[in-house]
Amino acid sequence: MREEKLNYEKINIIYSLLYFNLINQGEETIHLFAIIEIGGVPMLEKIVLEFAPEIAVIQAKTQKAMQSKAGHVATLLSLKEAPDDYLWLPSLSLVSAKTLKEPNTKVIYLAASMQVLYLATRIHWAIPEDKDCLKLKEQIQYPILLGDLLYSRFYAIICRYELDQYLAYLATLIGNIHQEHVLRNEKRKLNLSEEPHVLRIYSLLGETACYLAAHLSAGKTYLYETIKQMGNHLGMLRGVWEEGYDPYPYLTKWYRAWELLEVLPPGPGRECFQAILLGLGRKWGLERPPVCKDLRA
């Protein structure tokens, strides 16, 4: 119920801002602000410092993906939370690549495409049911089309930057995400816990962002799998944090991620993974497991 209410609020914000801009700027430059309330605690400061140029490219690409034809409906993403926070998914791609070698151009565009895909998913995720509410129809039209536009732009980025080799993998990811949404809605109707399906979506996203970036960086095969598992755990933990779930049942994932960290080669990539884990731990009042070394020492 809490989430349902939140979703309505999000849609209302989208509508109010759209309405505001229609009045104030005329038809020539209409701006659609999609506000996605994801959270407020920055946990990726280290990554922002480490990858400033790469993140600038991803942000520019995301902004471009949100824009429609000039003179028609220009769309712009305005995100409430700190940029380092809303870019958690592409950050995972950058960190994964850096664990093996310097992120190349393809990794940056893969990370940008993951961000565009993530935003499309979040926007469609937030669309409420109407139940004969006519006004809602007007409120949901733009967000639905914005989500569709982002999925199309995601496809365009993949093709343009010759990442087609991952199209099947990414298309399967999209299919699985939406199947999980259907299952989640079904559980909700039955008053059962939807948590496993929500977290599955986060873990699938995290896993894919990490695995494909590692694959593009052509590291050793056993490391792909380690990084993939790391992404799975971090994605799930991110979901726990973002959705405000009780972390206790998922702490094993946090500890397991520390174990995986030990397998990764030392360097800035591994340090960034450690920073993410420490950030999450701080949020939940956890300390670094005593068996794990402090990589910054």
Partner: peptide
């Protein structure tokens, strides 16, 4: 709505 959006995607 929700189901239709997810099934379209």
């Amino acid at each position: 709505n929700n189901f239709s959006l997810h099934s379209g995607d």
